[in-house]
Design a protein around this nucleic acid. Structure first.
Lengths: 232, 232
DNA sequence: ACAAGTCAACTAACATGTCAGTTGAGGGGC
DNA sequence: GCCCCTCAACTGACATGTTAGTTGACTTGT
């Protein structure tokens, strides 16, 4: 059993040390480079990064309030494991916010906003055709962020992102199913059509239907990767 | 101009020092005992509370992420002022979550839950009759928290509370209008009736209508108390 | 009176030391 | 082989010192 050596880079970021450490660790966790259950030893982190305990402690505390690490007091800190219950909880909250957002955007939107969404959607179609799933993944994320931003409330997008971190992490485990990306694009198209028509109810339904696909596809992960899930 | 002396009590609380300081300051801010704009001097707080800078710094940082204080780096920390825009933003988010919650509760609820809500509602009626507005205020809060809790998702209530802190603080400024409490009880009644009928759409509408009363009554505060609001 | 430069007060960010509490691996007794 | 106990390793919480950056008031020159 060799000790895995993680390449933690802090120098490519800017800002205060504490924030850089937080961002670096957060990325590692969200991309599953740090697997759930991984023990984060504070001393080792300090040594690797060449910083003192202060910024590392600050980073770990923020990650803890984010729910990305579990701190066992006086003992250890480890990357948090998934919990199906928590994932359902986050899916509920995310749906609540995104559905409200899309309804508001359906009611009042500018032509320019529609153009941006439409352009993004076309790009999604091209990326799926080219089988560039990584690119599609990012365009998908942007589509949702655009709708949240078009509410005119910047904190809405921030809050929605913050409240569904586990969901975002778990999504990394989903195997690409044939046909799913194409289906997702179609669902996005339905959402956009409803928005453009100013039909808030239809937009709500379309968004709800779309978002529920994700949690449905996440549920089976508990059996496929029990090692990543918290025992109940 | 005498220096106001604040009685900050930490000894009546328990848990880590940092958490106690946070709770004490948070309460002062949320009850408007610390008015928006008040400068919080770290050194003075340390001295008053008899603790070092560590727990105070931790508390102020948490309050900063809560949006309850504004930290001007290397200069000062002050209790944050209101912003109508932010309040509207919080109202939007709160409505999104509570509307989704009430719809879910309308779809699946137990008789026991209905009994609890019904009991709370009757209590509201009695408190309004007795003109116990403080008591009504708390019962009102509980009514909403119960619905959030009945979703079965504990984080939903926590998130909803966390995302509407400014709203909660601003509500302290609203002058009691004659007839408003009675009207609020009627709106609560409509919500409960819709839930009991299992009518998710009606529950959504009733909750939406009810919640929009608050922000409507908060908007005029910017003129009545401009000193509490951030200049735009 | 007024603009510009100066300085004291305050602070964030970070490093480091201390103390007490938790955990798990290994050792001793049965 | 099994249980319990001890102890080293690690940690959270807190105190404190240092450095460098910001601000506002006060002084100074005009």
């Amino acid at each position: 059993m060799t000790n895995k050596t993680f390449t933690l880079d802090i120098n490519t970021l800017d800002g205060p040390l504490g924030h850089r450490v937080y961002t670096a660790l957060r990325n590692k966790i969200l991309t599953m480079a740090f697997e759930p259950g991984t023990v984060l030893r504070k001393g080792a982190l300090c040594e690797q990064l060449g910083v003192s305990r202060s910024p590392v402690t600050e980073a770990l505390n923020r990650l803890s309030t984010d729910g990305l690490v579990d701190i066992i007091p006086q003992s250890a800190t480890r990357v948090s494991q998934f919990s199906i219950f928590e994932l359902r909880e986050e899916a509920f909250l995310r749906e609540a916010v995104e559905v409200a957002a899309v309804a508001k955007v359906a009611q009042d939107h500018t032509d320019e906003q529609m153009t941006v969404l439409s352009r993004n959607l076309k790009m999604q179609g091209l990326l799926v055709e080219d089988a560039d799933f990584q690119g599609f993944f990012e365009a998908d994320l942007e589509f949702h962020e655009l709708i949240l931003a078009f509410t005119g409330f910047p904190k809405v997008a921030a809050t929605a992102g913050q409240m569904s971190l586990q969901l975002r992490r778990a999504r990394m485990l989903i195997l690409p199913e044939p046909g799913r990306p194409k289906q997702a694009v179609a669902e996005h198209q339905a959402i956009l059509t409803s928005i453009r028509a100013g039909d808030a109810d239809a937009a709500r339904s379309a968004m709800s239907l779309h978002l529920r696909q994700l949690i449905t596809r996440i549920e089976p992960l508990e059996r496929q990767h029990p090692e990543y899930f918290r025992p109940n």
